[in-house]
């Protein structure tokens, strides 16, 4: 089973125009439908240690245990539950590893990272996130933010203290309420979503979502739909043209065709000859 035929993907990360190094880190494993994005923070260079550890530990760890051809033999609901469990476990392990490293290395003290993990399988998508890195979904002409930021600003929005218009003017944009690797344990938000053919998914760090308006992101996703690598280039360029104040990362996945697991002997037979 190779998902890279059904899922067209492209990713790009860029330091932006102000920072001299990149604390964002991305890992994609298109053949197994896995995409991981992390935006590191803390310390002088430790942010990129945290984000690098998070992406590589989670991607490598999941690749060890998530074998699509074996999982295809179990029921769909079982596979969903397993994906949530395994992602949760591996995010937890990455959290411990980052936390331990920061405790043992003074130069890494206080480091942490945001995280978005997307795992596609059998026409569903399991999403885990921590902090203010985001997942957007374009379905038809409608773009929605799938993840809800774990940030002070989002809490203020939820409690009705400020309006979305006021939020754009807030000075508290950069404060996250959850992060990976800052405490011995972490509270990971995990959900499963059904996908549809022609859906486009965008993982991004706040260097994109803070610099480029949602509407401009939406128009870019629609206009350049057929060319994922050009889309991510265009998004990064737009963030840089608007100032590029932070590191910018974008990972795009378009569901080119359904990627359901063939069930029943006839479907399995057909799949063999594809």
């Amino acid at each position: 089973m190779n998902l890279s035929q059904s899922l067209q993907s492209a990713s790009l990360t860029d330091p932006g125009r102000v920072r001299d190094h990149n604390e964002d880190c991305i890992e994609s494993r298109p053949e197994m439908g896995l995409f991981v994005l992390a935006d590191g923070m803390g310390g002088y260079n430790a942010g990129e240690v945290a984000s690098g550890m998070a992406t590589s530990l989670i991607a490598d760890g999941l690749q060890e245990v998530w074998k699509p051809s074996e999982i295809a033999r179990m029921g769909r609901e079982e596979a969903k539950a397993l994906s949530e469990k395994l992602i949760g476990e591996h995010v937890g392990r990455a959290n411990s590893a980052i936390f331990t490293t920061s405790q043992n290395n003074p130069e890494c003290a206080g480091m942490g990272t945001t995280l978005v993990v997307c795992l596609f399988f059998d026409n569903f998508l399991t999403v885990a996130h921590i902090g203010d890195s985001r997942l957007y979904r374009l379905r038809g002409d409608v773009m929605e933010q799938v993840t809800r930021d774990h940030s002070l600003l989002q809490e203020q929005l939820d409690s009705g203290l400020i309006t979305p218009e006021e939020a754009k003017l807030s000075q508290n944009k950069n404060l996250v309420t959850r992060a990976l690797g800052i405490d011995p344990s972490v509270d990971t938000e995990i959900h499963v979503y059904e996908t549809q053919p022609d859906d486009t998914y965008l993982l991004c760090s706040d260097g994109l979502s803070d610099m480029v308006e949602d509407e401009e992101i939406r128009l870019t996703l629609i206009t350049l739909k057929t060319n994922p690598s050009l889309t991510v280039q265009q998004l990064v360029q737009a963030a840089n043209d608007n100032g590029g104040r932070d590191n910018i990362s974008a990972m795009l996945t378009r569901v080119a065709e359904p990627f359901g697991v063939p069930r029943g002997w006839l479907a399995r037979l057909k799949a063999l000859f594809r």
Binding site: P15, D20, H21, N22, Y44, E48, V49
Partner: peptide, 12 residues
């Protein structure tokens, strides 16, 4: 502190 730089560093 000079931490090692993982993956993508100063370049796109």
């Amino acid at each position: 502190s000079e931490a090692p730089k993982p993956a993508a560093s100063a370049t796109t």
